[in-house]
């Protein structure tokens, strides 16, 4: 489970001055659920997820991942999290098997456990055919599978996805969506960020709409539909964002 309270991240940029990339964000995501973070480009999704993955230090507020505090137990947090983003690329000169083994070892897995996990993941993701080839020669789909295997090698309780379908073709994107659903069904806590409305509709149990670093609306799709008087996700989004713009 993920619990976030008053999380704030301020970047100090020479040209732009102070940027409140994440501003007093609070939400919880229980196990076995998918929490969708919906927002336009620059809304603060990536920054929020990076704070949870302890890649960045929060300026204020607190957050815990699988009961570990992101400030005081960053390494424990990372060992309980699987983080997959558009910006998490793979080492081109390693093979898929070496990639899985490397991240398994850094997660403290024994060699036997790594071998067993590699077999399981390769079965599940149908990777056997290219397991011992170098990643640099892979197609996008093969890379995607290897990335998923890398994310799952230590069987984390919490999965964090940052726009994982960005730049993928329809088939590859569908495979990802199926896989994310699978994770939930196995009882994982899933946090999923995207700017694609249809993905949120299809996938997420709870939706948080983020705009300019602030969480402007939150609820199940039905709750949001009731609150904004429309069932179409795009309409809901525009109204939620528009309401804050009007207030500001």
């Amino acid at each position: 489970m993920i619990a976030v309270r008053g999380l704030t991240k301020i970047f100090r940029d020479k040209k732009r001055g102070e940027i409140r990339a994440v501003d007093d964000v609070s939400f919880t995501c229980p196990a076995g659920r998918i929490y969708g973070l919906l927002g336009a480009n620059g809304a603060g999704k990536t920054t929020t997820l990076r704070l949870l993955a302890t890649l960045l230090q929060p300026t204020a507020g607190e957050a815990s991942v699988a009961d570990c505090d992101v400030r005081t137990q960053p390494e424990q947090v990372r060992s309980r999290i699987g983080f997959l983003a558009t910006s998490t690329a793979l080492y081109g000169r390693l093979t898929a098997r070496e990639t899985i083994a490397y991240f398994g070892r850094l997660n403290g897995l024994s060699d036997e456990r790594i071998a067993a996990r590699t077999r399981e993941l390769a079965d599940e993701l149908d990777m056997h055919e290219f397991l011992d080839r170098r990643v640099e020669k892979f197609s996008t789909g093969m890379k995607q599978k290897t990335s998923i295997a890398r994310t799952l090698v230590h069987d984390p309780a919490v999965l964090v996805f940052d726009e994982p379908t960005l730049g993928l073709d329809v088939m590859a994107a569908r495979a990802i969506v199926r896989f994310v659903r699978d994770c939930r069904d196995r009882g994982k806590t899933v946090l999923y960020s995207t700017h694609v409305m249809s993905e949120v509709e299809k996938l997420c149990d709870t939706i948080g709409i983020i705009h300019c670093g602030r969480l402007v609306a939150e609820g199940t799709q039905a709750e949001l539909a009731a609150r904004f008087g429309d069932t179409d996700m795009e309409e809901i989004f525009v109204r939620a964002v528009g309401a804050t713009e009007a207030n500001a």
């Binding site: 983080f83 910006s87 690329a89 080492y91 081109g92 850094l106």
Partner: peptide, 14 residues
């Protein structure tokens, strides 16, 4: 440049 830094930073290695 290759985007692998973030991958390794989100592993538990200190």
């Amino acid at each position: 440049e290759r985007g692998t830094l973030e991958t390794i930073l989100c592993s538990p290695v200190g």
